[in-house]
Amino acid sequence: MSEERYAIDVRGLTKRFGKKVAVNGIDIAVPEGQVWGFLGPNGSGKTTTIRMLCGLLNADAGEGTCLGYDFRTQSEQIKLETGYMTQKFSFWEDLSIRENLDFVARLYQLPKRHALVDRTLEKLGLKQRQHQLAGDLSGGWKQRMALAACTLHSPKLLLLDEPTAGVDPKARRDFWDEIHNLASTGITVLVSTHYMDEAERCDRIVYISVGNIVARGTVAEIIEQSKLITFTIEGEAARPLAERLRGLPGVVFVTFFGAVLHVSGYDRAKLDTALAPYRSDPHLVIRETTPTLEDVFIELQETNGEGNS
């Protein structure tokens, strides 16, 4: 443990916008070579945190290092060894795919640029379309191109801000395969996402809400920590039940997962009381289940603040 080296090791990271505290003194330590998921509702401070780590925003307080460099004073060095993929596609849509990659390679002053871009295009499978404008690519392809571009300089740290928002499932899966490929070469990845399946692919998860980290650990640890008790209710009569259960003592939240109703709370006795009237209904199947990560996240979001913003 003492030998473990951290790609990101910051404490008390704080950012204010006017009076609003966007990030409220958080600590993050990501060991080298791991893939960490960064979760939290919209506006919780994920993007702000990532931007502070790569020097795009000045932190109001906090100390620590990124890749061994002081993140507050050595952002130029950090930039050289970090790949940052923005939430919105931020490459030049009026440049071709090749021109974009070439531009990036030139800014980083990469040697044997031409061959490198060739290889990257080949690997991406965009060799045939290299002269197409980046703006003409579909969402999934834009994502892949952006990833290729921000890893062109072989960074040691990858910061990905909701990289798969609005991308189809197949492209998302390919994207994640690529992330794990990169991680296997020793790159550290911090990726923010709203997707549970993606969160489950991460080594560790950090959950942030209104600028504070409210949960962290592996998926199993986070579920364990939550102390949540969840019942599922299945059956044709389940649908109208949601409104009736919501607000009953002991019921913290009620959500549909497909046609299955999840009823969660902390107090087993109260939950049992709430569910008792429906146990006898032959059209309903009620059973206890291990809460899913999504249950836990909804719980975190409900108990920690703004809810959906």
Binding site: C54, L56, E76, K79, L80, T82, Y84, T86, K88, F89, S90, F91, W92, E93, V104, L107, Y108
Partner: peptide, 13 residues
């Protein structure tokens, strides 16, 4: 406006 500014700043320029 196009969002490319952030990218430009994130690179060593």
């Amino acid at each position: 406006e196009r969002g490319t500014y952030e990218n430009l700043l994130a690179m060593p320029t």
